[in-house]
Design a binder for these strands. Structure first.
Ligand code: FES
Ligand code: FES
Lengths: 151, 151
DNA sequence: TTTGATAAAGATATTAAGGTCTTTTATTCT
DNA sequence: AGAATAAAAGACCTTAATATCTTTATCAAA
């Protein structure tokens, strides 16, 4: 659905917004190691987000990436739009040139509802909503190998 | 969700299975033009499907691709499995190494239901179901430019 | 004001998806 | 048998996604 890059972006932003992280700057190396994402790749993604004002950064010693006043209220759809664009919600499931509800493909009706639901979820959820789930221990930004292999 | 290639595959099979098409062989050029898919690319895809027994073909003059006894009863999930593999339903939305309901990411619960719904739809729908929708004029395999630009 | 730390930027590499072109093989018709 | 036809096969190309590496700009502290 959304690209790997976009998932990395969301996880990066949420990481910076976690209760124990939000008051300090974090170097790209720390973030990348914690989230298990290639360092330089994540760096480029976060730079994009800085340019968009979704997060902030400063260079130099004790520099790093950090949240700003906008960060936690950013709706996820804004991140998706920044990285993947909204076109991902307008592609035909069967690879036709366009998706059209007037001239639909045989899977259009089956899946259009699902696609809208996903879109709406991205519109309604904010970074702060994901942060809450992490902070209360409902979910995790990176895979815990021990948990994952449990039955 | 599914790849463009997979969409092409489904459209190719459905084309061969349409009421007015199912009794004859169809050359790759005809199919590709009708569906507006690159000819040689579609050729490779259909060859895959022949190897899997989902459709049939014969070489030589008056040869072409055609349906067999299995074709119209093929569940869509079988085509998806053949082309994309079932792994596409098991990826984490946020690009973690694995999706895990024991150790879920903050979007897991939001979207897992949707993903299962899509999977089940692919399990339940057969080629014949899509054929019906086309035959009664509910939907279309290729984009009708006139329709598409209408209001 | 120099040094070291760190993000920014940009060049390059790799991989996978998507697409094109050419040659081979099987079949039919003359 | 030979020519024509069409799929099969395989080599190759293009583009986009993903990832790595190197250099530059900026800042803070000594
Ligand atoms: S999804 Fe195929 S036309 Fe909308
Ligand atoms: S979707 Fe991320 S863990 Fe399941």
């Amino acid at each position: 659905m959304i690209s790997k890059t976009c998932g990395y972006a969301i996880r990066g932003i949420v990481f910076l917004s976690l209760e124990q992280n939000k008051s300090t700057k974090h170097g790209i190396l720390e973030i990348a190691e914690d989230l298990q994402i290639p360092q330089h790749f994540l760096g480029k993604i976060l730079q994009d987000l800085v340019r968009r004002g979704i997060i902030s950064s400063i260079k130099g010693p004790h520099g790093g990436f950090f949240v700003n006043s906008k960060t936690i209220d950013t709706p996820l759809i804004e991140v998706v739009e920044a990285i993947d664009g909204l076109g991902i919600f307008k592609k035909c499931f069967l690879g036709r040139e366009e998706c059209s509800s007037i001239n639909p493909c045989p899977l259009h009706d089956e899946f259009d509802g699902c696609r809208s639901a996903i879109f709406k979820t991205f519109e309604n959820l904010k970074i702060s909503d994901l942060v809450k789930k992490i902070d209360i221990g409902d979910s995790y930004l990176s895979l815990n190998k021990e948990f994952a292999t449990e039955i």
